[in-house]
Write a protein that binds this DNA or RNA. Structure first.
Lengths: 188, 188, 188, 188
DNA sequence: GATGAATGAGTTTTCATTCAT
DNA sequence: TATGAATGAAAACTCATTCAT
């Protein structure tokens, strides 16, 4: 990738780091400019407003996350493996891309305008997997959105506590355990 | 309880409602005063700062939540029933005390200073239940904090989607389903 | 003196201490009440306003200072001794009544309304002494207010530096030295 | 010097005028902005806080004062002349740069944080002169800081009364008289 | 006399956004 | 494109004073 001609990426990188750590509201444009090594005015050359910047970053990262998960699912042979890969991918992403993950979660839960939240792509992906499993008869019948919510909740909360150092288990064991639990939740 | 002599409760009530709806950062002292029907200065007679007010409200509500759950567990006869009651209590609280619940969750996840977040009493309650079940041999052996995280996550995420209208299932059925799922997660 | 029935003296004592340390403007009624162990409202039972309190304290202390100096001059036998006693009294007062002295000086120089500052009684006392000395022919002819200003300035500035620990001489030596110097300034 | 690109000097000029007239505490940022013809926010682009602004102005003016005095001492031929020039310079500065002088004095005496008050350059200059005179044997032996304090006090107090219209002598005569008196104070 | 909660006008400070360069 | 000083509206917070108890 060639050296970008504009400073747009600098803005995005800096904003992501700060949004994630302190939230959107609590992050000032001044802080973003400072961290990006640019001037405040430059932000407005690339984005209409701070809100716009945040939304843009959110969508970009959600997309990135989604592609990351897709990569994880590529080589799976059956639905159960898909679910396992989904869980593993979720955890891996949260670990490797801490800033992106942190931002997605916090923005999703409180800070963004409703319309941006609608398309929680990874959740849709999970829903598909579960639907497939139900069709195949290996997952038990239950409302798909409910099931997705429960699985995602299990994963996310675990990550949350893991991050806050409140779970004293080795990382790989945690993934294994959560994966098994999620399977138990949805299988017959 | 007699009519209070100060307007402290007015401040707290107004702040809770606003914090919950828009978050702490996005709620202004002006809005709080307006809603409470008092002057801004009055807020500062009772609390050092907005942050102080938020923390105070958080702790009070967490405590309230905890007592609410304790009430639910009172008449349980065995560990399994305790877990069921815990789940049901969680859901009931989130429905009956929407504002309190919403505020607790959002404050816990992003807005409060670390030290206030540490003491998540309901989670400790769940941990106790799980430990008991493991001793009795009805729950399978697994790290307690991990198990708690997963169960709480399952519950909270479901509530989150339920609130956003993305789960098209009847409320009671959801509770039943989630309860069953949680049992599945931890039982042998 | 019997135990006073009101808390007026408590207010005065507390206010004096605070005014002197931080200035009138920077002292809040809240701080005064706190230090006096009374409520803010009580201040207004005894004084019209904070300004009124300050002025009242100023005048009271100035008077006190003046009487203190008069006591020092009582047993002097001639004009030169009077001047010596004046210098010594000034120093003694600043040492024994640090809070009173400090407040008088700072209020006099910046914080009070003009009209309160007019009557700088100790300076008038000095003027009298100098006039006497000139009549007797032992002090040289010079404008009286100018001479008073210089003598008072010499004394006050010395005290100021003494207080700030910037003069490394023994206290009694300082008084002796300043006394001599003041005599040199005005004598023929 | 070219027209400055920022309004920093406008802020400083306005603040100096107001600080001097009413003191730091009693001067509002609103008043500063109004007088400077800028918005309040602009003040904070250039200074961290009002206190910071005041300290900055204090140091700048003290430096200015010091350079002014140095200019006065340039063409002196001996120590006695130096002392005369010091006195004359002090008076001249207080008359020509009334605002600066007034601000330096009041800030020095009560309003600034201790650390800013420590470095009273002009007094150090005087101390040097006195030390020189003692070495040469024309000034009598006495503690240097004490001697400086007395001389500075004599000068400052005279200026203070002069300003308040309480000395009815012609300005030049006052300087002459004070100069002579100061010499008397320190000479053998 | 004494209280202290409440006031409200005022203070300092913040910050997203604009605009001349 | 990029800058960064300037803006101004709004934020958090302060405090002398009042008043019902």
């Amino acid at each position: 990738m060639a050296r970008p001609l504009t400073k747009k990426t600098d803005v995005i990188d800096a904003a992501l780091a700060l949004f994630m750590r302190k939230g959107i509201k609590a992050t000032t444009t001044r802080a973003i400019a400072l961290r990006a090594g640019i001037s405040e005015g430059t932000i407005y050359r690339h984005f209409h407003s701070k809100e716009d910047l945040a939304e843009s970053i959110f969508e970009h990262n959600l997309d990135y996350f989604w592609k990351y998960l897709k990569g994880y699912l590529k080589n799976t042979k059956n639905t159960e493996e898909m679910l396992q890969a989904f869980v593993a991918g979720f955890f891996e992403f949260s670990r490797r891309e801490q800033r992106r993950y942190g931002f997605i979660i916090s923005a999703h839960q409180t800070e963004l305008k409703r319309h941006s939240r609608e398309k929680m792509k990874p959740k849709q992906m999970l829903t598909k997997i579960l639907r497939l499993g139900q069709k195949e008869g290996i997952f038990r019948k239950m409302d798909l959105s409910l099931a997705s919510a429960m699985v995602i909740g299990t994963i996310m909360q675990t990550i949350f506590y893991l991050k806050n150092g409140r779970i004293a288990v080795n990382y790989d064991d945690v993934i294994k355990e959560v994966t098994q639990t999620c399977l138990k939740m949805v299988k017959k």
